[in-house]
Write a protein that binds this DNA or RNA. Structure first.
Length: 566
DNA sequence: TACGGTAGCTCG
DNA sequence: GTACGAGCTACCGTAC
């Protein structure tokens, strides 16, 4: 394997100018990280930047070039920001490029993302693993953890660094070929990623577009005001103590002592607690007294306090730095971890607030999955109801109970809502009955069965869809199911096969909406505060709220309208 | 004391 | 025979 090791800035400039003739370049970095568990994207230094075109490989030793950075950094920035970049798990490299040099690549082809989309069920997606998967050859990664801060890099280190590029050069055409052989979704997206890599598959384009954005989000973190969090915390702590002492006074037990609680529960209610927590089921089974309400509130507050603790634990200078899992879930939904801010209890949602002088913009889709389901199977009755802006649960209730839309009561609406959602998950009558019972609506199994029958008779396209999936699964045991953008999964269970196309299309549209918004809002200052599957939360200055809110609304609508074209 | 698995809650 | 997708904590048993 041939490569050039660059330690002289004139050579570096030559390489950069030479590579600027290519449409795209291969990229990897080696970084000297002090604490491998906690990379610091500004303080930890990039040692090598490996670059390549289709044939050649160049290793830029940034430590050696350090005195001359000013001479070639602007050209390198231009190169990496304008050209297509091919790399593996580019989020990592992009974060260091931003942190070290304020270089922000935009047009990327990430072999990690692409492999995950092509083959969603591999054990791992490390470069060495997928290299072996696609070529049968192995890649030695032992030098990865070697000392990249050494004065002189060893021959073995340099060869290792160059090898990563040669591996990328080898698998890139394989991946492009595999993508081109996938079934083509009936949907066209275009843009610089599409042009640069001659790539036309919508789910790949949508995901790749988000990679730089997510890198930036991770490095910038999310602003949360510690004092505001403490205010909310102390308010609900008061509430917590009130209940705690009230129960202590009246019942002589301390609710935070597991043993006392167990003992008291058995004596007072004759209920033996086996599970560690007081489950909702146990609490619901208590007689309707004041104590039941107090206990329910107490444990709710306790859980909210736990969530506040979790967030406070991750707070650094009034910011949290969650990791964004872009395609960790099989349906394509994004997740945050450490901390996850998508499951903040409603009681403490107020901890996400704008700075003084700023405002939050919160936008979410209404009933997106039901709309997708209706379009997916072309259930005309439901589509029409949505077009007429009807309350869909009420509308379904009017069909099931054969009543006028205006005469539907709360109870009937709740039942219809359960069935509407149940539709998305492939629910059967037994679970419907249990679910309704848990809402204190008592129905028999026969009634539940009748509701579902009437639901399917009212919406025949859904009935056909469920039946078709059932037969296909019976025949084949495993079937491949697709989202609108061509995201796919192999399903062997009925519920999965029903839910996947809907939830995954929801992810497609949500991610496209983010992509459109980023493009449309370019140049305007805003900060992402949260992304919750169908909800986008932004913060911006008061005088920009109207403009940004409008752009956000239009972007989400534009993405949403895609389902109508299919 | 450290780690893996599970129940049960939170959100969509 | 089965409501879908996730993350986090408390708690439990097991291994060192």
């Amino acid at each position: 394997m041939l490569f050039q090791y660059i330690t002289d800035y004139k050579q570096a400039l030559n390489v950069i100018h030479y590579l600027s003739q290519s449409k795209y370049i291969f990229l990897d970095t080696e970084v000297y990280i002090q604490n491998i568990n906690k990379p610091d994207y500004s303080k930890d230094k990039i040692r090598l930047i490996q670059l390549g075109n289709n044939k050649e490989i160049f290793l830029l030793d940034i430590f050696k070039l350090k005195p001359y950075l000013d001479y070639f950094l602007p050209d390198l920035k231009e190169l990496l920001e304008k050209k297509g970049i091919i790399g593996h798990f580019l989020k990592f490299d992009i974060k260091f490029l931003i942190g070290n040099f304020n270089i922000f690549p935009q047009i990327v082809f990430d072999t990690f993302i692409v492999s995950k989309l092509l083959f969603p069920n591999l054990q791992k997606y490390s470069l060495s693993y997928i290299y072996h998967f696609f070529t049968g050859k192995s890649l030695d990664k032992t030098e990865q953890s070697s000392n990249w801060g050494a004065l002189e890099l060893s021959k073995s280190q340099l060869e290792y660094a160059a090898k990563d590029i040669s591996v990328l050069q080898e698998i890139f055409p394989i991946l492009i070929d595999k993508i081109s052989k996938l079934p083509k979704p009936n949907l066209k997206l275009s843009g610089s990623i599409s042009k640069t890599f001659s790539l036309y598959h919508p789910v790949f384009l949508t995901e790749l577009f988000l990679v730089p954005f997510i890198s930036k989000l991770e490095i910038e973190g999310i602003y949360l005001d510690e004092n505001k969090i403490k205010n909310i915390e102390s308010k609900i702590k008061d509430n917590y103590s009130q209940i705690y002492y009230k129960i202590f006074k009246e019942e002589s037990i301390r609710l935070d002592r597991q043993n006392e609680l167990k003992h008291w529960f058995n004596k007072k209610f004759g209920i033996k607690i086996n599970s560690p927590n007081l489950s909702e089921e146990i609490l619901n089974s208590l007689p309707n007294t004041e104590i039941k309400i107090l206990l329910k509130n107490f444990f709710k507050i306790k859980r909210a306090l736990n969530k506040i603790e979790e967030i406070k634990k991750n707070l650094k200078n009034n910011r949290i730095f969650p990791e964004v899992k872009q395609i960790a879930s099989q349906t394509g939904r994004m997740y945050f971890i450490e901390p996850n801010i998508q499951n903040i209890p409603r009681e403490i949602k107020g901890i996400i607030k704008a700075k003084k002088g700023n405002k939050l913009i919160i936008a979410d889709y209404s009933q997106i999955e039901l709309r997708i389901a209706a379009e997916y199977v072309k259930e005309e009755k439901m589509i029409k109801a949505f077009k007429e802006n009807k309350d869909l649960h009420k509308f379904t209730a009017s069909l099931i109970f054969n009543k006028d839309y205006s005469e539907i009561n709360d109870d009937e609406r709740k039942k219809a809502k359960a069935i509407n959602f149940g539709l998305l998950y492939g629910m059967n009558y037994k679970t419907l009955k249990e679910y309704l019972n848990s809402l204190d609506i008592s129905v028999s199994e026969e009634e539940a069965k009748k509701f579902i029958d009437r639901f399917f008779n009212s919406y025949p396209a859904f009935k056909k869809w469920h039946e078709r999936i059932k037969t296909r699964l019976k025949e084949k045991r495993k079937i491949t199911v697709y989202s609108l953008f061509g995201r796919r999964m192999i399903a062997n269970k009925f519920n999965d096969a029903i839910n996947y196309p809907i939830q995954a299309t929801g992810s497609d549209i949500f991610k496209l909406a983010i992509g459109i918004f980023i493009k449309e809002a370019e140049g305007l200052s805003f900060e992402i505060k949260n992304l919750v599957h169908d909800e986008i939360v932004l913060e911006t200055e008061e005088n920009k709220v109207r403009e940004l809110a409008n752009i956000l609304k239009l972007s989400m609508e534009k993405a949403g309208k895609i389902i109508l074209k299919s």
